[in-house]
């Protein structure tokens, strides 16, 4: 079994609304897995279930073969799943570097004692957070913004910072919720290259995205969700040629061959 993430019958209802209904998802290690579907299909709810923000109504989630179904978000983050948020959730009034430093929370262990007396462990932790944090910022091209407030960054750049912050937790699985939203075409192209590079370095990635160019370019497999249910799964080519998917979920204009 090479699946890094599996869900069995995963369901979440809010009152009478079945936001996610009996979804069986299997994400292969090393893959980029796309999740698409119309607005309100339950994609973000699915992410919230996978990361522990919501507790499933029914069903199970397995990460590396272990059940993480009822674990808290912080436990799941510690196990190696990181995420970005659709509605950007940066620490707005912290510097860009400090945002990334939070990502090293799980890899450092400074206690009150260490902080009071600046023990060697404190210095080591601060060095890890500052150095590695700066490395990650350099990778995503934000090093020159390190001391700026996160809220002062342009929208597309804030998305990059969200990815940087998620990478700082050293995840095995990265969940990206509409990473290209608010980016211009040049930035999106850059993002595609960056995501591919991360994947080549061994990171498994799940992407929710409406930008079909990005999805079709990057993903090894795509799951299509509608009304909370999985209606199709396959390779990008299969998804593009599946008449039901094209008609109902991508709309006619979006999957115009010249646009893809």
């Amino acid at each position: 079994m090479t699946a890094i993430l599996q869900t069995a019958n995963l369901s979440k209802s809010f009152g009478g609304l079945h936001a996610v209904e009996a979804v069986n998802l299997e994400v292969e290690r090393g893959h980029i897995h796309g999740i698409i579907g119309p607005n309100g299909a339950g994609k973000t709810t699915l992410f919230n279930l996978l990361t522990g923000t919501y507790t499933p109504s029914r069903g199970e989630i397995y990460f590396n073969g272990l059940s993480i179904t009822r674990l808290s978000p912080e436990r799941i983050a510690r196990l190696g799943i990181a995420r970005t948020f659709q509605n950007i959730k940066l620490f707005k009034y912290m510097s860009v570097l400090d945002n990334v430093k939070i990502g090293f929370h799980t890899q450092t262990e400074t206690s009150f004692w260490d902080a009071f007396f600046h023990t060697s462990r404190f210095h080591r932790d601060e060095r890890i957070a500052a150095q590695k944090g700066f490395e990650i910022l350099t990778r995503v091209g934000l090093a020159k913004h390190a001391d700026d407030l996160a809220s002062n960054l342009p929208y597309g750049t804030q998305r990059k910072l969200e990815i940087a912050r998620a990478l700082a937790t050293q995840p095995q699985l990265l969940l990206l919720d509409e990473p290209a939203a608010g980016m211009n075409p040049a930035e999106t192209a850059e993002l595609i290259d960056f995501i591919r590079k991360l994947n080549q370095e061994g990171l498994t990635i799940i992407i929710i995205e409406h930008d079909m160019k990005l999805i079709m370019n990057l993903c090894h497999r795509i799951t299509v969700i509608h009304h909370g249910e999985k209606i199709f799964e396959g390779t990008p080519v299969e998804v593009q040629n599946h008449p039901g998917v094209i008609e109902a979920y991508l709309g006619k204009g979006r999957l115009n061959p010249s646009a893809v």
Partner: peptide
């Protein structure tokens, strides 16, 4: 942002 903090572990 408490949700984001939890997502960071």
């Amino acid at each position: 942002d408490e949700d984001a903090a939890r997502a960071m572990g």
